Simulated assay, not measured.
Amino acid sequence: MKSFDLDSAIRKIPDFPHKGILFYDITGILTNPEAFAWCIDRMCEIYADRNIDSIACIEARGFVFAAPFAYRMGIPLVLVRKAGKLPGRIMKKEYSLEYGRATIEIQASDILPGQKVLVLDDLIATGGTLKAAVELIEEAGASVADIFGVIGLPFLNYHDVLKGYSITVLQEYYNE
């Protein structure tokens, strides 16, 4: 696969959402068809031989990358949503944020015992949401094959929160 300068497509927005924060914006990838295609192609290349049964993606920007990947790989797409967004029987997990608590949910019938699940988000920062998703998947009897992010911010210590899990990212940033 040919290389691509993904960093050049990621917008860096200073002081968003708060002063002192540098926001890494994936919408620059989405408005650049070559960058977006490279991301999906690269994901397919990375996971071509990994025996993944489904992909669980985090609301909402994770959906954007997971849907074409799931289609190309021919695997089911499982939505990990904020509380109150899914009908039917759900499984939920409450977790801590830096400013409070949140809850995510999956439909109970979407994750089957014994499945190998790839967990995806657009950006891995502190790892809290992904850790909650991983716990839901494991409570359903499945295993986590890998955790994937388009962008990773290891300076926020997500490796500590997700210790013991394989993590793959396309672009890492090491400082704010």
Rank of each mutant, 00 (worst) to 15 (best):
I29A: 09
I29P: 06
L30R: 08
T31C: 11
T31W: 08
N32C: 13
N32G: 07
P33A: 07
P33W: 06
E34H: 12
A35L: 13
A35W: 00
A35R: 02
A35K: 02
A35S: 07
F36E: 04
F36G: 07
F36Q: 07
A37P: 01
A37D: 11
W38N: 01
W38Q: 01
C39L: 10
C39S: 07
I40W: 09
I40N: 07
D41H: 13
R42K: 15
R42L: 05
M43H: 04
M43I: 14
C44L: 11
E45W: 11
E45P: 01
Y47M: 06
Y47I: 07
Y47P: 08
Y47E: 04
A48W: 04
D49S: 14
R50L: 09
N51M: 11
N51H: 15
I52W: 00
I52M: 05
D53M: 09
D53G: 02
D53T: 06
S54E: 02
S54V: 00
A56D: 06
I58F: 05
I58R: 05
A60E: 00
G62N: 12
G62A: 12
G62H: 09
G62T: 05
F63S: 11
F63N: 12
F63I: 09
F63G: 12
V64L: 15
V64P: 03
F65Q: 03
F65R: 02
A66D: 05
A67R: 04
P68H: 09
F69V: 11
F69I: 07
A70H: 05
A70Y: 01
Y71K: 12
Y71S: 12
Y71T: 13
Y71W: 10
R72T: 02
M73C: 07
M73H: 00
G74I: 05
G74W: 00
G74H: 00
